[in-house]
């Protein structure tokens, strides 16, 4: 009886180890699943050792970094996740060009401005305001402020005589 029990026990233990060995997840399998899980976040790479996932790479936001970590954690058999992802904000967009008012609306607005300056003429051409005539310095300053507020490309007053 004892011998039979022992044999059964040994077989049972052997079977247990066989199952245990077989069911132990391989790092390569985890790797595949993790890689698929994080592939939606560009710039992230994953490495797996003994069920521990190490994430590396560079993303542009903290949200992406956390999303990659959560995606890796959600994979079956992952013991833990070491998140070495760097967050680097994207390069700032190139400076937007200065908005210049179109000639048609510029002409209308200029007409409103200069009607109170009888000695001054302002021509509009391709966003450039060319000022001619003559005006007192203080009045010209008022006019210049008003013209600049219309966002022209340039206010050329070389032809203006300031009294």
């Amino acid at each position: 009886m004892n011998l039979r029990h022992l044999t059964t026990s040994i077989m049972a233990i052997g079977l247990f180890f066989m199952i245990a060995c077989k069911s132990k997840p391989k790092d390569s399998e985890i790797m595949n699943t993790v890689s698929t899980a994080v592939q939606s976040i560009p710039g992230v790479t994953a490495d797996v050792k003994d069920g521990v996932v190490t994430l590396s790479g560079t993303v542009s936001t903290d949200d992406e970094k956390m999303a990659a970590e959560n995606a890796a954690k959600s994979v079956k058999d992952v013991k833990s996740v070491t998140n070495n992802i760097m967050v680097a904000p994207p390069a700032p967009p190139p400076t937007a060009p200065v908005a210049v008012t179109a000639d048609d609306s510029l002409r209308m607005a200029v007409a409103d401005v200069v009607k109170d300056f009888p000695g001054v003429k302002v021509d509009v051409n391709d966003g450039v305001l060319t000022v001619t005539g003559e005006e007192k310095a203080s009045r010209w300053k008022t006019l210049k402020m008003a013209l600049d507020a219309l966002h022209p490309k340039k206010v050329d007053a070389k032809g203006l005589k300031v009294k």
């Binding site: 600049d148 966002h151 490309k153 070389k158």
Partner: peptide
Amino acid sequence: LWDIYGKIDPNFLTGDVVMD
């Protein structure tokens, strides 16, 4: 600001600034 602008470019004649 307009006073400083007028000091650097007397009477704003150069036309190299548009300030709003």
